[in-house]
Design a protein around this nucleic acid. Structure first.
Lengths: 237, 237
DNA sequence: CCTGCATAACCTGTATGATAGATATTGACA
DNA sequence: TGTCAATATCTATCATACAGGTTATGCAGG
């Protein structure tokens, strides 16, 4: 929810009601105060109250029953939002993400080698060329690196692989190059073998060799893991 | 957004306006029709229109400028929302998801075998017992099945694996057992080997044997894939 | 012709009152 | 004690109105 775009009166009621729900004051199944009661409590018109409740309903937090009232819905996932903390800069966090990526992207590379179209090959080659240029000019490579991986996921002809990369993009390409990079030591020390590792994967995909593609990707990601682990050990000394 | 909790009049306006935005009919910066115009177009009261717009505002899709109108906001991620269509009931969709799951969960099982705690073992065994009871009573098993997989992901000691399962939960445990299951043929024909397949994975995790755990999970998921593919072929005949 | 100012028109934000339909509560009666 | 009807309460929607802000238009002056 974006409180910046909602009027202050409506926003305040939304926030208050959400607080009640998330703190357990209003448990699942509990009935919220009636619209009339809320207008009195907040000294606002019923229009404002209804707009606030419309938002809560849209988010699936409550349901309104005519003649009865508005009731809090049971939310199975009251806990953390998946992948919401991807720009945490702990090395251990990056390692965790790499472990998951490793599982997905090794398979992704193999499927891409088996299924890629000629057009996708063209894009992959172009993407690699852009990355090479970035490296040559000493520019940041995270964006082009991610794009290369994304193109591979697209080449699997299974949208779920690309969607997965979209979900974890935040953990790979930092939002700002200033703040995050200061804390991520690996970002300041780019992979010296990035180009050849990507090239190895790309060659396997061009050749349509799934096993070689998986192996290339495995080496690529394991090397990244290794660098993070080395930094962990260095930090502990 | 949960259209099930919103009144039909409000919901329809939200859907229509969202369509205009997502299809590019209303590009970023474009002005939506005024509230007065929308009440005329949809033959509804202004209350209904305002509630719909309040929801769009809460989602950050539009902003209202007093005296001016309501304007579409620039959204960097104008594309699809990752994993937003997980309850689509096409068999090909289920196959796609299984391919991705296969990559993650095979690794997940191996890591769980290597890293699980005694407490997590206890939970896994209990989770399996619940599933066995479900099967014995002929009750739906999707929930318990997912829980078992989730417990394995937790046992990897890498939150990202559990988070991944949270993200794709919708594609595994249908929201309603009535509507979706009618269209998912595999749901109506449960896996006859579910218990022994889970048991094989569980045994490997108990024994702390990553390779066996990975193999067990691979067989389990490949069998699922096989059943979906068989239905695909049956449907094409 | 261009610029500046005033006015009108249009817009969102909120308030108020009303009706319709559904549900919950209460009281009376058997 | 149980049932039924009446009443109260509730959401869903409609209609009207005012306040404050923005935009468009017209007119006067340079």
């Amino acid at each position: 929810m974006s409180t910046r775009q909602i009027s202050p009166l409506v926003s305040r009621i939304i926030t208050d009601l959400k607080d009640r729900i998330s703190t357990g004051e209003c448990v699942a199944g509990a009935r919220l105060p009636s619209e009339a009661a809320l207008t009195a409590t907040y000294s606002v018109s019923r229009t404002v109250v209804r707009e606030a409740i419309a938002v809560l309903r849209a988010e699936g937090l409550v349901e309104a029953r005519k003649g009865s009232g508005v009731f809090v819905l049971d939310r199975p996932e009251q806990g953390r939002i998946p992948f919401a903390d991807l720009d945490i800069d702990r090395i251990s966090s990056a390692i965790e993400l790499l472990e998951l990526r490793s599982a997905v992207e090794i398979r992704s590379a193999g499927l891409a080698a088996a299924r890629r179209s000629a057009l996708q090959l063209e894009k992959l080659i172009e993407g690699h060329r852009l990355l090479v240029g970035r490296v040559a000019r000493g520019e940041p490579t995270r964006e082009a690196d991610f794009e290369f991986h994304y193109l591979i996921a697209e080449s699997t002809q299974n949208q779920r692989f690309a969607e997965f990369l979209s979900v974890i993009r935040q953990g790979i390409v930092p939002r700002t190059v200033l703040g995050s990079s200061a804390a991520d030591p690996v970002l300041k020390a780019p992979n010296p073998h990035l180009v050849e590792e990507h090239e190895r994967i790309l060659d396997a995909i061009v050749e349509g060799d799934p096993a070689a593609a998986e192996q290339g990707m495995q080496i690529h990601l394991e090397n990244s893991l290794g660098r993070y682990r080395a930094f962990l050990r260095g930090a502990g000394a």
